[in-house]
Design a binder for these strands. Structure first.
Lengths: 303, 303
DNA sequence: GCTCATTGTCTGATCTGATCAGACAGTTTG
DNA sequence: CAAACTGTCTGATCAGATCAGACAATGAGC
């Protein structure tokens, strides 16, 4: 194909026309006079036209020069605007943010963060996929994924947002009926509501100080969705194990109480993962920052 | 001021988006793959934004990439059109042609050439200055000047168009009354109509074979404009000396006859002169070509 | 499931163009 | 009339563009 245009010469020419002199153009562009002279000369050569009439100590555009100046000036303004707008979106959230998070975490933590985000950036638009199934960020063109627990997709970049604690909880009525010495060692004989979504085969490692107990649970009811599990526990059917953020509200309102509260279960991480990219848009970074702040507040109010 | 934008990278990016691959873009642009990869990478760096999502064996624009592509494509199209249009005007006459010629030559030779020029290029516009006073091409922004006789303005480039002969002419009535042996040696005693516009002090060098006569004229009437001189001669007041093109028509129609026809006067050149410029627009070159052709025809019909 | 082909990136080397420093000619200004 | 200023030209230097080739990763074909 034909040789590529060298558009970098345009600015030398337009600046000469605007300032009326090669010397002033060189000053404005902070280059040597010879550069301006050379670049404009080459432009005239490439066009096969005389753009500037050089008279003694003065420069004026020719007829073609005026015509070309008008077009070159438009091109340069458009380029400047395009560069500026894109650079701006690297600095300021704009457009559409697409994110995914597990259902439960999405509802309890991400949703309020979205509210805060939109208050801060009213023009932003957000598309959420709250699903316990793991999305492929690249294929589904998602800007940000939240992973709770253990990282699965190792091709994505990850940033830790916070951590979660896992609580054993029960309705106050059920908790009142439990034996006074109920602990992990008696876990098998207690009624449980199981969550089929969780990894593992129903075994949980409890710890207290230096003591650990591998408790094997025997759920009387199993559900495949965390909200369903929670409903059963609220109904007093059995005990349940939940991430702290899932039950923070119910605990605060007395709808649930902690059981084996002095024992701890393995904690997990909460990570943001991103598709591979050279640069992270401001819209993504801004949201992650808000999530981190929310996680810090959660950690403080749980402690 | 801020660092200059490098607009030469745009074409690599837009070609990747259009072709869907770095490899295809490199083929289309006839460069190495690494060049496209590098140039787009640098563009992303300058913008601080990711423009392309690189998945396995595939490339797709990001959201910002699509936005930027739209604008970059417009910029490149406009640049291509601007370059093309100006280059075209170096190849094809367009716009306004401004020219100057001496009054007499303008009316007799340039005007018919303008008619031929406009038949050939109907969209051209022409502005003429027919004046015996010499114009400053640069200050008055004139594309083309015709100089008849001797070149005065040496700063202009010149191109010879043709030459002129100078004729002694008289009305048939006057010519019939002249002594049969009338020649340059008897010139002083003959009635003359002088042209104050001409150089010299009334002395003309006549030549015949190897014989030369420096004749001193004694005008009974002097005019400061060639048309006025011609009117007097046509009226039989006296003899006159004119460039051949001035009286070609009157001679052909029998209104004038040549006197001392076997003697020759110094001939002169007809030149086109141009203001200093890097390139000559097509509109100027085309007109000059037509003038040269007209001069050739004149030379043939006079011979 | 394995091998080959293809893609995009990276690296060091080379080439080309951009730019600099300075000289020069011509014109204007004081 | 001399000094200052402008635009152009030149040789040298520097920076960026480009090349050739290697490499990792993935998809296609057998």
């Amino acid at each position: 194909m034909t040789e590529l245009l060298n558009l970098n010469r345009l600015v030398y020419f337009t600046t000469v026309v605007e300032t009326g002199s090669f010397t002033a153009a060189a000053d404005r562009l902070d280059v040597a006079k010879a550069v301006v002279s050379h670049q404009v000369g080459r432009l005239e050569q490439e066009l096969g036209a005389t753009l500037l009439r050089r008279t003694t100590r003065r420069v004026a555009p020719t007829e073609e020069g005026r015509l070309f100046y008008d077009r070159a000036a438009i091109i340069l303004r458009e380029a400047e605007a395009a560069y500026g707008d894109i650079s701006q979106s690297a600095l300021k959230p704009t457009g559409m943010l697409r994110l995914t998070a597990p259902l439960d975490y999405g509802e309890k933590v991400v949703a309020p963060t979205i509210a805060a985000y939109l208050r801060k950036y009213p023009k932003m638009r957000i598309e959420t996929i709250f699903d316990d199934a793991v999305s492929n960020l690249v294929d589904e063109q998602i800007d940000l994924g939240i992973r709770v627990g253990w990282l699965v997709d190792s091709s994505n970049l990850a940033r830790r947002l916070g951590s979660l604690q896992q609580f054993v909880v029960a309705s106050p009525e059920l908790a009142a009926r439990l034996p006074k010495d109920a602990g992990p060692r008696q876990a098998k004989s207690l009624p449980w509501v199981g969550n089929a979504q969780l990894r593992g085969v129903g075994q949980w490692l409890f710890s207290k100080d230096t003591e650990t107990v591998l408790a094997e649970l025997n759920p009387v009811v199993s559900c495949d969705k965390t909200p369903g599990v929670l409903s059963c526990v609220l109904a007093g059917i059995g005990l349940g194990i939940f991430p702290d953020y899932s039950v923070a509200d119910d605990l605060a309102r007395g709808r649930l109480v902690r059981v084996f509260a002095d024992w701890t279960l393995p904690s997990g991480g909460i990570h943001a993962v991103f598709p591979p990219a050279r640069f992270r848009p401001a819209k993504v970074r801004a949201f992650v920052d808000l999530l981190i702040a929310a996680e810090r507040r959660r950690a403080r109010s749980a402690g």
